[in-house]
Amino acid sequence: MKCAKCGKKIGPLSKRIVTKDNKYLDEECYSKVFKNVGIKSLTNTKIRYTFDDFNKLLDQAEKVNFDEDKETINQTKEKFRNHDALLFDRLSFDPVDKEIMQPKTLTKPFEVIPYSDIVGYTPIERGHSKNKKHGITRAVVGGALAGGVGSIVGATTGGKQFDYTDKLGVNIALKDGNFLEAYFIKQETKQGMMVKAAYDNFYRICSLLDGIIAENGHETSQKVEMTNPNDNLAKQIRDLKELVDDEIITQEEFEAKKKQLLEA
């Protein structure tokens, strides 16, 4: 890898930070802007600034504390509470200002993302019975499958086909190529009240994301789908066939949906 600012090669053990838009900065360059970086620079911790932000800060010739502004973070958290934000795993959804708050983790910075940055999401549902493994991973890109495969999965699974649910959640795709994650089950969990509560949250966040994607408009959906429409269609059909193989939908339902997709 190379420093986006000076072009010098950055060794695998060299100090570095990563900008919000995935640009690497070596210690010589980032130290001109950020102070109190410390040992964090030994990892690939992503900062909340883009590369353009870094250049603007560099022009100001005034160093910025690398740590997050705690006062600003607290004010943001208070605003989300006052707006009765919906909490899914670690993500908070503000229905008033239409923003998502992602808390700081070991690998991600504190960040507030507008709903308009969402371009799609992938529901993740994996489980197994005593001897048979099942896995459902459906991409809902730009709302393209809303009311299609997504609704079939939501209407017919719900963990009822599994003795155990192994993983349940969503990966949310953003315009800049990054992802947000919300997981309600992360390890083998036997069917019961805990799984039921997880599925309640799973369906709620999927419905919320469907609405956000629809609000973002046809232009966003079309832009994502046009990247490779033939591959996308083939994948949807393969996904449907997997549902048939797992006995989640019938052959008749598969043929009807396949015909609908081919005629679209």
Rank of each mutant, 00 (worst) to 15 (best):
K257V: 15
E219K: 14
E225N: 14
Y164N: 12
K20L: 14
V96I: 12
K196C: 06
G148K: 04
A182V: 06
K133L: 12
K241T: 07
Q75I: 06
I118L: 09
K223L: 13
Y164S: 04
L180S: 07
T43G: 14
K259C: 04
G211V: 03
A214E: 08
P109D: 13
F93G: 05
K46L: 01
E215C: 03
K23L: 00
M193G: 05
K235I: 05
V141Q: 06
P109F: 01
D59Q: 15
M226Y: 03
K20Y: 05
T165L: 04
L57F: 11
K46S: 06
P114H: 03
F110D: 13
G120A: 15
P114E: 03
Q236S: 10
F88G: 12
T72W: 07
I124F: 01
M1I: 05
G150D: 13
R138A: 11
H128K: 15
L42F: 02
I152W: 01
T137A: 02
I213C: 08
E28M: 04
N230T: 15
D67A: 15
D21F: 03
G135M: 06
L174N: 13
K257D: 00
V33S: 07
G158Q: 07
F51W: 07
L145C: 10
S207I: 00
E242Q: 11
V112C: 02
K70G: 03
K186P: 04
Y115F: 15
K20E: 07
V195A: 10
I47K: 07
G177W: 08
G38M: 09
S41I: 09
A139I: 13
D176W: 02
L25E: 11
D239T: 14
G143I: 00
T220Y: 02
E219A: 14
A182D: 11
D210A: 05
G217V: 02
V96K: 09
G38Q: 03
Q251A: 14
E263I: 08
E78P: 00
D163M: 02
D53I: 04
E68A: 12
G159A: 12
L174S: 09
D53L: 06
K56W: 01
V112I: 15
T45E: 02
D246K: 10
Y24P: 08
V153R: 02
A173Y: 09
C29G: 13
N228M: 02
N201L: 10
T189K: 04
T227S: 10
N74D: 14
K40D: 07
F184T: 14
I152R: 01
K133C: 04
E71P: 12
N201I: 08
G177I: 10
K196A: 13
N230D: 08
D52N: 03
K70T: 15
V140C: 11
K20C: 00
K196R: 13
D52T: 01
E255R: 12
H83F: 07
K35A: 09
A4C: 12
K32M: 06
V170A: 07
T105D: 09
G159S: 00
V18N: 09
T189D: 09
D117I: 02
C206Y: 00
I212M: 04
Q60T: 14
T72L: 11
A182H: 12
A182I: 07
F88Y: 15
G150P: 11
